[in-house]
Amino acid sequence: MDEYVDILDEQGNPTGQSCLKSEAHRKGLLHPTIHVWLYTKDGRVLIQQRGKHKDTHPLLWDVSVAGHVAAGENISLAAVREVKEEVGLHITQKDLEPIGTFKAVHKISEDFIDAELHHIFLCELKVPLGALTKQDSEVDDLALIPLFKFAEETWGLANVAKYVPHGPTYYKTIVKEIKSRI
C-alpha cells in the first residue's frame, strides 16, 4: 500500500516534509520504520518469512514485525498497529521496550533505494505460536526458534543468506538485548 511517510534528514530528524512511500523509495529519502522483535522468556525469538510478493527481500526471514510509520504517526503506536496487522497480536505501548534506532540503506535497483531509520523495540511474546494470525499479503510464514540458533545463523554467519541482510552489528544488538531479558 502506498502511504505518506515523513522524510528525515541524515541525522534522523524530521524535515517537516512528507511524500508517498513509493517516492521516498524511488529517490532514496530517509524515512522512519519500526521493527518489533517478539521473544519468549524461555529464550526463543519469533521470525517471519517475508511474503513472496514483497518488493524487497521476498521469502527471506526477518524481524518478527516490521513496517513503515505513516506521516504524522506516533512511532510506538505504529509499532502496536503493525504487530496487530502482521501477526494478529494485541499489545499496548507499555508492552514495547525501545532499544534504539538503526539506519539502513539498501539499493534494490536503480530506481529503488530503501533508506530507513528503524525504531527497534522488543516485546515479550506471552501466547503460543498457534495463537498468532499472519497477514497473508505480507507474511509467508512464522517460526519461533531458539535464540542461540538465531544468533548462529545471523551473526555467527552460519546461514546469513536465509535472512534479510541487516548486517552482523544489527543482529548482534538484537541477540544481546533479548539475552539480557531472559
Rank of each mutant, 00 (worst) to 15 (best):
V80P: 03
A78D: 05
A78Q: 07
A71Y: 07
N74T: 05
K84Q: 13
V65G: 11
I75N: 00
S64P: 08
A70M: 09
A70Q: 12
T56C: 14
L89A: 05
V69Q: 06
A71S: 15
V65W: 03
L59R: 14
L59Y: 13
T56G: 09
H57F: 15
L89N: 00
S64E: 06
E86W: 03
K84E: 10
V87G: 03
V63Y: 05
G67D: 08
R81M: 10
E73W: 00
G72D: 09
P58D: 05
R81E: 02
V87E: 01
L59M: 15
L59V: 12
A66S: 15
K84A: 11
G67R: 08
W61D: 09
K84D: 04
A66T: 10
A66R: 12
E85D: 06
G72E: 04
L89R: 09
S76M: 02
A66G: 15
V65A: 05
A78T: 04
V69K: 08
E73F: 06
V83R: 04
I75P: 11
A70H: 13
V83H: 03
I75H: 04
V65T: 14
V65S: 09
E86V: 02
V63S: 15
I75R: 04
H68T: 12
A79R: 02
K84I: 00
S64K: 07
L60R: 14
L89K: 02
E86T: 09
H57D: 14
W61A: 01
V63D: 13
V87Q: 03
A78H: 08
L59P: 00
E86M: 05
H57V: 09
A71N: 12
G88K: 02
S76L: 06
H68I: 11
A66M: 14
N74R: 10
E82A: 04
A70S: 13
L77I: 00
S76I: 00
L77A: 11
